[in-house]
Nucleic acid binder design. Structure first.
Lengths: 327, 327
DNA sequence: TTGTAAGCGTTATCAG
DNA sequence: CTGATAACGCTTACAA
């Protein structure tokens, strides 16, 4: 591997001169040409590690995601990627496979690699999470969940829940089935649901049945095959669009009409809700925007600027074909 | 930031002893305890850069993907991630935004960072691509496209095309519409299509109309709204599952029945094809497997083992509800 | 403008 | 088993 010394020697100058050429470029026209020529010939590339070692800066951002096949995550990632690029950061994306241990591991690894900041897509917030984050000196920004004393960006999940609740009530529905996810996910499993429940139970004579599933389509589909036959509800609220898509498939299978027999809605605003039929009513979240703002906020954190602990982003109801007035 | 020197000083030993403890651990029970204690107290983490600088090894693999929101890419990525992890590699994933310039840029950046190998998801293979790859000394493995003298993993796209052709002919169809993508993508735009065409035109009395779109759902949907009304075909072959899903939506919109009015199929085997109705006939590609084998092959390349230039992976027809016999 | 030399945090070598 | 010392490739005072 050719290094700065080789270039210096071949060009007949000191390596510091080459370095200067590489960085601020303040060298004489003559040496500039000589160096340029040699670099071209040899295909020399400065070693990024040596550079980071010296400069104590890596220009890298770490991102920890729970899984690679999540539509929402990918949209946020696009925002992150785009913004990081603009700001001159290189991204290291690591996958934790929905596993707490691996989340901690990745956090440590990234810290060791001296990334300047870390964005972590949080699924849950345990004591261990909070402690690990506090133990690394790298700034960490959580996306999706909040916790005491930790910087985070979150969606207005409670409000999203109330939006669906309000809308469903206005359609005249009174009996609901809520298809939720585990409460370990505070934002999606608890707040989103609670917003819905609070809004609906504010009206007398309403009922809410509950079913719990996970984030996968297959699980929701399988459970849907059962609960659709047993429920008394006329409106089914799914905690995510993926779940809604899966329940819709189950309903089709069982020859139920949506929205004839049941109204159905999700949360998220994934592209998929627009490519099934009927198209699914949902609450659209500003995923890409979240990525953009996350990087900006992280940059401020890195530069030790003052930033609010929690930033939350608004969402909005998107009415599609899967919901209809109660009759 | 606490470093190996601090630890050494506090433990009252030489930094080389600490280093030895860190690496092969061959130190006396006594010093081991002392060092362990200090490390715990200080939360010391060895600096990965200094380490890489010295060891001339980074244990990192670079991955260049064209976009973040592709279902197939993400599946391959899962295979890559899983295998890389098993082999002790750390992943750097970079996004090129379907832009050649950025592909070259990323290639350079990764090489500079001294990743040990690079996996590149190729969209097209230009002279420039080939030259850039040959100019870096880092081993590069292409996924999805092949070229003279370049290591790559590809799907049997031509064969996939013939499989659909054979199947459609067996159903009795003779008039086809092929919804393709640009020929810059040799594998998907040319070979997949050619396999289909060759198989179908082997039978006399067949016709194939052609339409071209891109990889996005929206474009395919919009075009579908038009070509569905104009075509003479009874079977529509879409170059990807995404296109098929979008065309299905357009067909629904126009009140055509699938497979009553048109049979419809895609390529890829994405999860989405199973969550629309009717479910879509497709050719399932072993994406995850491709990721796994890619990393294994790249590792061999890195270790300078002998490997075949091109590896191709089989796929298989998955018959679903969107296709029916011609009547 | 250019060169010398020190140092970034590690690991490896080689005496002791 | 342990410690001094020389690298690894680069940047940056400081001096010339």
């Amino acid at each position: 591997m050719v290094n700065i010394n080789d270039i210096a020697k071949q060009a007949g100058v000191a390596k510091s001169t080459v370095s200067r050429y590489l960085n601020n470029g303040s060298v004489s026209e003559d040496t500039r040409r000589k160096i340029e020529k040699i670099i071209k010939e040899t295909g020399y590339k400065p070693n990024a590690f040596a550079r980071s070692l010296k400069a104590q800066k890596t220009n890298m951002l770490g991102v920890i995601i729970p899984r690679l096949n999540s539509a929402s995550t990918n949209e946020v990632l696009q925002g992150i990627d785009e913004t990081a690029r603009k700001l001159g950061y290189q991204l290291i994306i690591t996958n934790s496979d929905q596993n707490n241990e691996r989340e901690f591991e990745n956090l440590q690894t990234l810290a060791k690699q001296k990334v300047e900041g870390i964005i972590m897509f949080a699924r849950e917030m345990t004591e261990d999470h909070i402690n690990t984050v506090k133990s690394v000196e790298t700034p960490v920004l959580f996306i999706g969940q909040k916790a005491e004393g930790i910087h985070s960006m979150v969606h207005q999940d409670y409000e999203a829940g109330t939006k669906i609740g309000k809308y469903a009530l206005e359609l005249g529905h009174r009996h609901f089935l809520y298809v939720g996810v585990p409460e370990t996910d505070q934002a999606v499993g608890v707040e989103r649901r609670q917003g819905f429940i609070d809004r609906v139970t504010a009206v007398t004579g309403t009922t809410i049945e509950r079913v719990e599933t996970d984030f996968s389509r297959t699980a929701a589909y399988t459970k849907g095959l059962t609960f659709l036959k047993e429920t008394e509800a006329t409106y089914i609220v799914c905690a995510t669009d993926n779940i809604a898509v899966a329940v819709l498939k189950a309903a089709n299978e069982l020859n139920y009409s949506i929205p004839g027999d049941f109204s159905l809605s999700g949360f998220g605003g994934y592209e998929a809700t627009a490519y099934v039929s009927p198209t699914i009513t949902t609450v659209s979240y500003p995923y890409r925007q979240m990525g953009i703002e996350a990087v900006n906020k992280l940059r401020q954190l890195i530069e030790k600027e003052e930033v609010p602990l929690i930033t939350d982003l608004q969402n909005n109801l998107v009415v599609n074909e899967s919901t209809a007035p109660f009759k």
